[in-house]
Simulated scan of single mutants.
Amino acid sequence: MGYDIERFVGYVNEGLLCCVCRDVLEDPLQAPCEHAFCSSCIHGWLVHHHNCPEDRQPLEGALLRPLFRYMRNDLSRLQIRCRNREQGCGMVCSLESVDRHERECEYGLVACTNAGCPIQVERRSLEAHVAACEFRSRECPHGCGYTMLTCEDSQHSCVAELRTELELLRSEMICKVEEVRHEMESRLDSQRRHMVQKESLLKSEVEELKGQLSRVMSDVRALLGAERLHRQELEQAELEKRELLELLKSLQREGRSHTPSPAPPPGSAPEGLRKTGGARGLTLDCIKRKSREVTVI
């Protein structure tokens, strides 16, 4: 809606009137056919119509443009009375500055700043009203710290208010304790589950290590048994070697103690001598072979 034409001082050009509400333009827009409208009026019209309300030519919201500059200048220079003139304001100012004046006008109605108060008073009387308003809050004069409204003075009891405050504090404390308890129980349950899982994992690892240790001990015992057997075999072989060496030395000493006689022609040696020499040679060969076997072992 536009500005009421009755508020203006002097003549108002008809071209500055809205084609819909017939009041002076407010937030004006212009159609391609050069008819001007209040912004709210033309948008409300286009919800149900698709033409200009003045000449019925097709019109869409996207075709609307700002008012010509010269028309905006003429509009801003118009002299208008304050809307609070019925309350006593006699201010007359240009249209471009009327909004600023009305936001600060001492005769303008404003709501009381006390919560719950439904009264609107003139801005110039607001301070006095707030000081005397029955919804004005203040602290108890007896020192209980309760903030109360002026209308509650006769009904206020410090003991009752303190008891109510204490009950509220107790309820809040109980709620907080329950929240902390639930939170701690939840954390403990989580830690308990984690410890059980970790304990199970550690038990599995310990069992696996026990199995590995058992296998290693079995292998070690087998190796120790094999080493002991091998050592016994070496000791036995060393003993046999020493015995054979002693036997060999004794045979060599025995052989050196006998003076050899001239060798008889082949085929003419006595039978007994041939038997003795053959047996001794066989014995020496056996001893040497045995000695080599022992050395190899």
Results as ranks from 00 to 15, higher is better:
228 R>F: 07
100 R>F: 04
108 G>S: 09
118 P>L: 03
101 H>D: 02
193 R>N: 09
112 C>H: 00
68 F>C: 01
202 L>Q: 09
226 A>K: 15
296 V>L: 06
96 E>N: 12
36 A>K: 00
48 H>K: 15
258 H>T: 14
192 R>F: 07
6 E>D: 15
70 Y>C: 05
60 E>S: 13
85 R>I: 04
224 L>P: 02
284 L>K: 00
183 E>I: 05
261 S>D: 06
236 Q>W: 12
21 C>F: 06
189 D>W: 02
59 L>W: 05
62 A>P: 06
192 R>Q: 10
12 V>A: 05
195 M>K: 09
278 G>D: 10
146 Y>E: 11
87 Q>A: 05
269 A>D: 14
85 R>L: 02
207 E>G: 01
73 N>T: 10
293 E>M: 07
120 Q>L: 00
119 I>M: 02
257 S>F: 06
223 L>T: 12
155 Q>F: 08
149 L>P: 04
92 V>D: 03
165 E>N: 09
229 L>K: 13
196 V>M: 04
50 H>Y: 06
286 C>P: 01
149 L>R: 11
145 G>H: 06
297 I>H: 09
76 S>G: 02
214 S>Y: 05
288 K>N: 00
249 K>H: 11
156 H>R: 01
17 L>W: 04
173 M>Q: 11
92 V>P: 04
50 H>T: 13
233 E>H: 09
70 Y>G: 05
53 P>R: 06
57 Q>E: 14
292 R>I: 08
269 A>P: 03
87 Q>P: 01
174 I>N: 10
207 E>S: 09
232 Q>F: 11
131 A>G: 03
219 D>L: 13
12 V>L: 09
155 Q>V: 13
199 E>D: 12
198 K>F: 11
179 E>C: 10
258 H>P: 02
39 S>T: 00
201 L>G: 10
27 D>H: 05
134 E>T: 07
258 H>Y: 14
152 E>V: 02
102 E>M: 01
78 L>N: 06
280 R>H: 09
225 G>F: 10
288 K>G: 00
174 I>E: 13
38 C>L: 03
143 G>T: 05
285 D>N: 06
135 F>S: 04
83 R>P: 03
150 T>I: 08
116 G>L: 08
125 S>F: 09
180 V>W: 11
207 E>L: 10
191 Q>K: 03
23 D>L: 13
110 V>D: 01
32 P>I: 01
95 L>K: 01
30 Q>E: 14
169 L>F: 11
164 T>I: 01
113 T>S: 14
215 R>H: 12
295 T>H: 04
5 I>T: 15
194 H>D: 14
210 K>I: 14
283 T>V: 08
110 V>L: 00
168 L>E: 07
174 I>D: 08
18 C>H: 01
7 R>L: 15
246 E>C: 05
